[in-house]
Design a protein around this nucleic acid. Structure first.
Lengths: 202, 202
DNA sequence: GTCTATATGGCGATAGAC
DNA sequence: GTCTATCGCCATATAGAC
């Protein structure tokens, strides 16, 4: 259930976010969204014409928030290892607390490519600026990278995948909840070195 | 549509695999599975009592195939960099051609934890043996790793995530289909060095 | 704007003939 | 074993009162 004092439209968006993130488009029920928002099912259609529209709205804001955070950190003017520390520290914790978000985004793209791809990034300059930024920053530190894109994707992979795959990993490797938590805390500490080692020429 | 000459039960499993992999449990329709198998909807219930059972059957074999391949390669008695090359070369190609499989597995675990977690790995010794194997092999090469688990997860992350996220990456970074292919081919070549650099003590 | 009641369609599952 | 026909339910969406 969401807070009472917001305007109805906001409450619906909040509720839709909760339900869609957990269940995805197919799994989500308009009834559950209405219940979570503390209103009636018919009101959903009053504010958002149908389920698709509501989903698209939720998807858009979630996607933009997630992508923009990474872009922001890696565009700052600090040593690369520090960027890594800040990003991984926040990102791993954030994803652990919101572990449905990556799957929500990935599934959204596969299930409804047409509408969603349109809205994803209008402005291609932002990622390219960030790439240039990574490259220049590393040059100042005496590190030459062949492809800042590959590097950025490597960082995202190492950050996102282990959180998404948590239920599999814990099962396959027989780890308890505490062991998994220790596993993530260890990653926050070791990954920056791991990555810096990887890109420093021997 | 699947081949005609197999027994019906096999055809159903084949068809179910196709549909479930692409659409997931909620998105899949028994009608579509029947059509793909070239048979009638009622026959599905004759061979597999309900949708859940059929899904569980598909999930089990897919999961075991995927997990076991990695375990196998990393248990061989060859230099670690060679293991990486073989694994990444096959894995990245395989995932690109079957890009729904990782999401199918991840979603399956989140959507139906109870039944699926049971079947995932009865034998916890296999992963532990593989870990020991990785550690011992690296020691022979003069490399000391603190945690073979972290290393293994890093390899999986770098391999799996970029393929799953392909539609996002191509959109966010404005890459064409050919550019994406080049991107993956480059990864196969550079990742083994990237990883070996990362774990060699400076 | 918000509600109740209902239309409409689709889906999983079953009955029963062959 | 395989089919056609159908039941019963549930989910999205709409009509219409307040």
């Amino acid at each position: 259930m969401v807070k009472k004092d917001q305007p109805t439209k906001e409450r619906i968006l909040e509720a839709a976010k909760e339900v869609f993130h957990r269940k995805g488009f197919d799994g989500a029920r308009m009834q559950e969204i209405a219940d979570t928002a503390g209103i009636n099912k018919a009101l959903l259609h009053y504010y958002f014409c149908d389920k698709e529209t509501l989903f698209a709205e939720v998807f858009k804001t979630t996607f933009e928030n997630v992508v923009m955070f990474g872009m922001d950190v890696f565009s700052r003017n600090i040593p690369f290892e520090e960027k890594l520390s800040i990003f991984l520290d926040f990102h791993i914790s954030f994803l652990r607390d919101n572990s449905f978000i990556p799957l929500f985004i990935l599934n959204g793209i596969y299930e409804r490519p047409d509408q969603l791809r349109e809205m994803m990034i209008k402005n291609l300059e932002i990622p390219h600026l960030m790439m240039g930024n990574i490259m220049k920053g590393l040059q100042k530190e005496g590190i030459e990278v062949d492809s800042p894109l590959q590097l950025y994707i490597n960082v995202l992979s190492l950050s996102i995948f282990p959180v998404v795959a948590k239920p599999i990993l814990s099962r396959v490797f027989g780890l308890s909840e505490e062991q998994m938590n220790a596993f993530y805390e260890e990653r926050k500490k070791t990954l920056p070195h791991f990555i810096m080692n990887a890109i420093r020429k021997p």
